[in-house]
Amino acid sequence: NRLGIIYEIQGMKAVVLTSEGEFLIIRRRKDMKVGQQVSFENEDIYNV
């Protein structure tokens, strides 16, 4: 599992900021809110 803070939500995608200072786009889940810490898997990351 990886951890990140939700920075922005766009439709079915969420932008998270990881503890390494990396911004990633992941698959959104219904319970996500901006500012929330979430765990996610590598499979949830969109390749940009």
Rank of each mutant, 00 (worst) to 15 (best):
E8Q: 09
D31C: 14
M12F: 13
Y7S: 05
A14R: 00
T18F: 03
V15Y: 13
K33Q: 07
V34Y: 04
N47M: 07
I5Y: 06
V48F: 04
V34N: 03
S39T: 12
Y46N: 08
I6W: 00
L17N: 04
F40E: 02
I26G: 00
G4M: 02
A14P: 00
R2D: 03
L3I: 14
R27M: 15
V48I: 09
S19Q: 15
R29T: 14
A14W: 05
L3F: 11
E43P: 02
N42L: 09
Y7I: 14
K33A: 06
E20N: 08
Y7T: 10
V34W: 04
R2M: 09
S19Y: 08
S19F: 11
Y7R: 13
I25A: 10
L3A: 11
Q10G: 07
D31F: 14
E41K: 12
G11D: 13
M32T: 06
E22P: 02
Q10V: 11
L24Y: 08
Y7M: 12
Q37I: 11
I45P: 03
I25Y: 06
Y46F: 13
S39E: 13
Y46R: 08
L24I: 12
K33R: 07
G11V: 05
K33P: 01
G4Q: 01
V38Y: 06
R2H: 06
V38F: 04
Y7N: 08
R29E: 12
V16Y: 00
I26W: 00
V34F: 03
Y7V: 13
R29D: 12
I9V: 11
I6G: 00
N42V: 10
G21N: 14
I45T: 01
E22W: 07
Q36F: 09
L3M: 13
L17M: 13
G35L: 04
L24M: 08
I25Q: 07
I9A: 02
M32G: 02
Q10R: 11
E41M: 12
Y46Q: 13
E41Y: 06
V48P: 15
S19D: 10
Y46A: 12
I5H: 06
V38N: 01
K13E: 09
D31Y: 14
K30I: 15
F40C: 02
K30T: 15
I9R: 00
R2V: 03
K30V: 15
V15E: 03
G35Y: 04
K30G: 15
K13M: 08
M32K: 01
E8Y: 14
L24N: 03
L24G: 01
F23Q: 08
N47F: 08
R28I: 15
